[in-house]
């Protein structure tokens, strides 16, 4: 099977030849090319080459056309702070006074240089993929983007104390999010990760989520013409899982802080589970730890398809050594082949 066929079968809740592996390596591409992170991410050619080499090296089933999440804040005019051993992060919040929301204008993805760079990456990867490897794009959800736009604290106060301005900001962000997703799909993205940590019950109370993030996700995802994955960036999902499924999404991320078998049981036949290796713990894993974690995840969620093995945060830290990623690759190859008869044998 090609990676595309493997992933298509899995998200159709069928068993492919083996469990698909989504290696969410963004920064490791720079290591493949022996470049500083800033030099790597400011050139679309570098990122394309990096992703191609990462797939060859680690055997994942996707091209991950993601540079850094703060790129959307950058598109709104915010500073980005480069780091030599981690992702670029958003600088000081762009909206300094909540009244500025009334006159805030969203950038046009087709003419904003940093976003054009992402679109070039997607187009380049789609060409290299030739239909055999899914290219995943990313949007930060309208509900989560204000964490960078305003800073977390002022955003929480906006949510609780200024609902009129909150909804005004959501309208701006929703329009941008849909336009940004459409541009990525037009460039060749096969699926869109909808990055929405603010909707997780880890951050927002389910009752508040139901009257905010859920409505926003339903409206936004219904306008994105591709497969989508709601990604809660290691946040918990179980208390709102039925609501997440009701958005029409195709995939949901699982948290390493929740029971993967329970998550899979509740998702089976409805949405595909993506997760849930602990990327931060990976930094100190041995090859044996990696194999045990992969085996455990596959045993919990692999049967029947509907499962993609990935880390639970959506970005594997720069500090995770190559040897661990190679051990994950090898463990998936060893333990992820369908049918997973070893799971039944060990369960007996």
């Amino acid at each position: 099977m090609t990676s595309a066929e493997r992933v298509t079968a899995a998200i159709s809740h069928q068993e492919p030849d083996r469990v698909p592996l989504f290696m969410t390596t963004t920064m490791h591409g720079a290591r493949e090319l022996d470049l500083p992170l800033k030099d790597y991410f400011t050139s679309s050619k570098n990122v394309i080459e990096g992703q191609v080499r990462l797939k060859e090296h680690y055997g994942g089933d996707f091209y991950y056309a993601v540079l850094y999440a703060a790129i959307e804040a950058e598109a709104f005019g915010q500073d980005v702070r480069w780091c030599d051993n981690g992702p670029a992060t958003a600088g000081a919040p762009g909206i300094r006074n909540i009244e500025e929301i009334r006159s805030l204008e969203a950038p046009d993805p087709r003419t904003t240089p940093c976003l054009q760079r992402v679109l070039e990456v997607i187009a380049g990867l789609a060409e290299r993929a030739a239909g055999e490897t899914p290219v995943v794009g990313l949007v930060v959800s309208p509900f989560s983007l204000p964490i960078m736009q305003l800073g977390f604290e002022r955003y929480l106060r906006l949510t609780y104390e200024h609902r009129d301005l909150f909804w005004q900001l959501m309208a701006i962000n929703e329009a941008f999010c849909v336009a940004w997703a459409e541009a990525q799909i037009a460039a060749g993205a096969s699926a869109i990760a909808y990055y929405d940590p603010a909707s997780s019950p880890t951050v927002t109370a389910p009752a508040v989520f139901r009257e905010t993030g859920l409505l926003i996700a339903k409206r936004t995802l219904s306008r994105i013409p591709a497969a989508t994955a709601i990604h809660l960036a290691s946040g918990r999902c179980l208390p709102i899982l039925d609501e997440l499924i009701s958005t029409g999404t195709n995939m949901v991320s699982a948290s390493a802080e929740e029971d993967l078998a329970e998550t899979k049981a509740r998702c089976a036949g409805r949405v595909t589970v993506v997760g849930d290796l602990n990327g931060l713990a990976m930094r100190r894993w041995t090859a044996e730890d990696a194999e045990a974690a992969v085996k455990s995840a596959i045993a919990a969620a692999g049967r029947g398809g509907g499962f993609i093995l990935a880390d639970n945060h959506g970005e594997i830290p720069w500090q995770v050594p190559d040897s661990v990623l190679e051990a994950v690759r090898d463990a998936v190859d060893r333990w992820g082949r369908y049918p997973l008869s070893w799971v039944d044998d060990e369960g007996d």
Binding site: L156, T159, Y160, P201, T202, V203, T204, A205, P206, V208, R236, L238, P239, E257, E258
Partner: peptide, 8 residues
């Protein structure tokens, strides 16, 4: 325990 949100 996952019973309370960060916002709360």
């Amino acid at each position: 325990r996952g019973e309370v949100a960060l916002a709360q």
